[in-house]
Nucleic acid binder design. Structure first.
Lengths: 207, 207
DNA sequence: AAGCCGACTGCACCTGCGGTACAGTCATGC
DNA sequence: GCATGACTGTACCGCAGGTGCAGTCGGCTT
């Protein structure tokens, strides 16, 4: 079963893997089905057996990306919480871990699939766009919950809307990835996360 | 001459205008030459007379966008400087004006052409990518100069790298536009600019 | 008035890509 | 031993991005 299952799953997964790399590098539109089937050694019919159309590939790609992202964030917050009981310092540690992770990427960050989809919106159906929206909302809820826990213990010294502050991290991640790519500076993203951390510190601990 | 020149320039400009709206709304890949020539009432040959290929259209679009962006920023900083002599308060006023301008956009912000290009990188030549990079560098230099002037009078109360703080505005603009679009919340971008302003205040004036 | 030039039009044609349709194959699992 | 899942191969379609080229038409120079 193991060998079979491996082979069975490998075709679809191989397409997904190749597609992810290609899409993050050069965009969805520029990634052709032909290059994917060539790379995955599968026939065109085989491709359309797994994905009814290119839009379904986008959907699968996005789901995969969002899920992996979620796992990474879970891991970071869990590690941070294990190191610290205090909600503020737990969040600050998580941001530090996050920045370290970004800094460890020696090449330029592969890019944000969600943004990639957003900028090619019309290529896909409403469903794909809703997926991206749900992912962004999940980030908001997650970070917002952290900030709510913090504010209960640390009255903010700078007047900020907590939802905006929660969104700000998504904004900085997304913008940071883009500017990082444009500037061809892999460390830019990590430094921006450090700046966000400095802001959170200033808000709850003062300058 | 006026009528002639107007008509002469109008074909190319009309394509550019239509293309800009279409690209910002649905992405470059999803914008077809056919729809542009239909909208501009020009023949396919006419299109290729003006733009050797689709990549040249992207280049022209980007140049146009960057230039307009520059003019808008010039205007905002000039207005802010006219209202205030102090470098810090001038910058804060400029950010306020900027946020107001973003808030005035009742529809979702049209999107950032630079990011749009970045995510479809391989569609275009290196030249187009260099254009985007130069634009981002210009933002960095512009904001950095402002921050240098501020720091001479206001010793920072939060340890930050000024170049990073300069880049942060570009990052928040770009990320803000993207998240704003994904969330379908036109006000999100303005609120993020306000947050950046709060951070700058905290850095130089304290909490 | 002659003629050149810039800005096109019209048409024919080619390629690559996304997608459809459908019949056949081949290993695995019940 | 037969159904099912995971494909292959072949043939075909329409659209979009180009290419090539001959012709047109108005304005500008000389």
């Amino acid at each position: 079963m193991s060998a079979t299952t491996l082979k069975r799953e490998s075709a679809r997964d191989k397409i997904l893997e190749l597609a992810e790399a290609a899409v993050l590098q050069k965009g969805f539109g520029a990634t052709s089905i032909e290059e994917l089937i060539a790379g995955a050694s599968i026939s065109k019919s085989g491709f359309f057996y797994h994905f009814p159309d290119k839009g379904e590939l986008a959907k699968a790609l996005l789901l995969r990306y969002i899920e992996r992202d979620r796992v990474i964030l879970d891991d970071i917050f869990n590690r941070a919480d294990a190191l610290n009981d205090d909600p503020l310092h737990g969040f600050l540690v998580a941001l530090k871990l996050f920045a370290d992770m970004m800094a460890a990427m020696t090449e330029v960050h592969p890019g944000c699939m969600v943004a990639s989809v957003c900028y090619q919106e019309q290529l896909f159906d409403r469903e794909v766009h809703e997926l991206a929206r749900d992912a962004a909302l999940a980030w908001r809820v997650r970070f917002r919950a952290r900030l709510d826990a913090i504010v209960a213990q640390y009255p903010p010294r700078v007047p900020v809307d907590l939802e905006d502050l929660a969104d700000m991290l998504s904004v900085m991640m997304d913008g940071g990835i883009t500017i990082s790519r444009i500037m061809r500076d892999p460390q830019l993203l990590a430094r921006q996360v450090v700046l966000y951390r400095a802001f959170v510190r200033a808000v709850f601990l003062g300058a």
